[in-house]
Amino acid sequence: MELFDRLLEDAAKAFTGWDFSFIEDTGRIQYELLPWSYGSKARKYLFGAESLLDMGTGGGEFLSKLLPLPAYTAATEGYLPNVPIAKKKLGPSGVEVFQIEADDQLPLQSDTFDVVLNKHESYAAVEVNRVLKHNGIFLTQQVGGTDCTELNQLLGAPINPSYQDWSLRTAAEDLTSHFTLVEQEEAFPVLRFYDIGAIVYYLKAIPWQVPYFAVNTYRDALYDLHLFIEKNGFLDVRQHRFLLAAMPK
């Protein structure tokens, strides 16, 4: 029980931006490789681009690694605490960071961007179409509706019905009203946890996985998972990812 309690205390470390290095860089979680690279696809579409929008930039972690950026680059972020972090990281590169409240009300002019990137962020297809140039490209990697639902089941937590049908099929159907699809892929890679503290840290960082997650609420189930990991060395759950690239019609 002492190790269990200490790992729970350790998981109380603050999470900022979109930075999982506390558990990633120490190898406490491991991701199975996807059959595509979002970064490589982004780089491919950015060659020759003069303007770029990064939707849901978080703390600017990914965008800051795509230097050199197009002459005009903007980013949006809906989570207020991330906005100053993103501005601090991206400001020196000349990136405009916009705080947004609604996916269908982007504070950006029409026909502005050669490329719109969107990694794990919600979007309104009609609004993305509006801000893209006619020959532009929209590249998005999304978290599917069955992502890590085994964690919910193991904890006895409800699964949010709002996302369960979100998949490559439903996203593609939504986009085809305004876009011509260029690429589409879907995968269910394994996410491996090596200790209960990593699970708790992960769930606190993505509160939509288990709404209103609190250690005290799920303490008994968490302890059972702790014992399972101590016996077996790790816990595997299935992620759900899909990727789409599309051009305005």
Results as ranks from 00 to 15, higher is better:
residue 4 F to E: 04
residue 10 D to M: 09
residue 19 D to P: 02
residue 21 S to H: 13
residue 22 F to A: 15
residue 24 E to P: 05
residue 31 Y to M: 11
residue 31 Y to G: 06
residue 31 Y to L: 09
residue 33 L to N: 12
residue 39 G to C: 06
residue 43 R to V: 10
residue 45 Y to H: 09
residue 56 G to M: 06
residue 59 G to M: 05
residue 64 S to R: 13
residue 68 P to N: 09
residue 71 A to I: 10
residue 72 Y to E: 13
residue 74 A to R: 02
residue 77 E to I: 04
residue 80 L to T: 13
residue 82 N to V: 00
residue 86 A to T: 01
residue 90 L to V: 08
residue 92 P to K: 04
residue 96 E to Q: 13
residue 98 F to H: 15
residue 99 Q to A: 14
residue 104 D to H: 05
residue 106 L to H: 05
residue 111 D to S: 08
residue 113 F to N: 00
residue 124 A to M: 06
residue 125 A to T: 03
residue 127 E to G: 04
residue 130 R to T: 10
residue 131 V to R: 12
residue 142 Q to V: 05
residue 146 T to E: 11
residue 150 E to N: 03
residue 155 L to V: 01
residue 162 S to E: 14
residue 165 D to H: 14
residue 166 W to M: 08
residue 168 L to H: 11
residue 173 E to I: 08
residue 173 E to W: 07
residue 176 T to W: 05
residue 176 T to N: 11
residue 181 L to T: 02
residue 181 L to P: 00
residue 182 V to K: 14
residue 183 E to S: 13
residue 184 Q to F: 13
residue 185 E to I: 10
residue 186 E to W: 07
residue 189 P to N: 01
residue 192 R to F: 01
residue 193 F to E: 00
residue 194 Y to H: 11
residue 195 D to I: 00
residue 199 I to M: 05
residue 200 V to Q: 00
residue 200 V to S: 06
residue 204 K to D: 09
residue 208 W to E: 11
residue 211 P to Q: 07
residue 216 N to Q: 15
residue 219 R to D: 07
residue 224 D to S: 12
residue 228 F to M: 09
residue 232 N to V: 06
residue 237 V to E: 02
residue 237 V to T: 08
residue 243 L to K: 04
residue 244 L to R: 01
residue 244 L to W: 00
residue 245 A to Q: 03
residue 247 M to S: 14
